[in-house]
């Protein structure tokens, strides 16, 4: 398609190997599944909650289901996909932990991107003004925002550890989707990264339960 793809979606597309089975949750206009289908020969499908987007995307010939992350993932069988993608949506779902569990049940790997609530501007605004931060990433007032579960990069690392997910790759990116140079230092990434992008894999039960030597 002529339309330019969001940079973070391009980064995600590059993480997916050719021919993979992919589910994009919250696929909006289908840019990622279109890219994956056309350039990587993937079997890419989408779920989207906004019916107008679903209508437009199906009318472009892309396979999209009307549905949402909180209630529709349970209807997919185990390991139906190689990659399950959730971009910029985790903070807006009802039960993020459950959504991640479902993603790693139906997919071998999960790719998750979310806006980082640990960014220095967010911290500074709350500290300085005593009010809920409003930045270019967190752009809506607290009573209007759909982002009911904000988290920081550090929070996310801790959740992955609790749930037993292996973080295979991660990077911090700025609002434009460009990689930030904080790759080696998660505490700096947590301070300076506007968005985060993670690739997770469930540690297989066989390994998790391996007896300690």
């Amino acid at each position: 398609m002529a339309k330019k793809m969001r940079l973070d979606l391009r980064l995600i597309a590059e993480m997916v190997p050719p021919g993979a089975r992919v589910l994009d949750i919250g696929c909006s206009d289908g840019a990622l599944i279109d890219e994956l289908t056309r350039t990587r020969g993937c079997d890419a499908r989408g779920i989207e909650i906004d019916m107008a987007e679903v209508t437009r995307t199906v009318a472009r010939g892309l396979p999209v289901m009307h549905g949402d992350a909180d209630s529709d993932l349970e209807h997919y069988p185990d390991r139906a996909f190689d990659y399950v993608v959730l971009s910029r949506t985790l903070q807006a779902v009802e039960r993020p932990r459950e959504v991640l569990r479902q993603m790693l049940r139906i997919g071998e790997r999960a790719i998750v991107s979310f806006p980082n609530f640990g960014h220095w501007q967010v911290r500074w605004q709350l500290l300085w003004s005593g009010r809920m931060p409003m930045t270019s990433v967190w752009a809506r007032p607290w009573h209007e925002t759909p982002n009911i579960h904000p988290c920081t990069i550090r929070d996310f690392f801790m959740l992955c550890a609790e749930e037993g997910y292996a973080v295979e790759r991660w990077l911090a990116i700025d609002e434009g989707g460009r990689k930030s140079p904080w790759r080696r230092f998660s505490s700096l990434a947590n301070l300076f990264g506007e968005q985060a992008l993670f690739q997770l894999r469930r540690i297989s039960p066989a390994i998790a339960k391996a007896p300690k030597a």
Binding site: D43, R45, M51, V54, T55, V58, L62, P63, V64, M65, H66, G67, D72, H75, Y76, P77, A80
Partner: peptide, 21 residues
């Protein structure tokens, strides 16, 4: 229709599902 679409999901079928307003 949603029940049909979800059954198709369970079967890992390639399915689009739209409700027209």
């Amino acid at each position: 229709s949603r029940a049909v679409a979800r059954a198709l999901n369970r079967a890992a079928a390639n399915v689009s599902f739209v409700e027209v307003e």
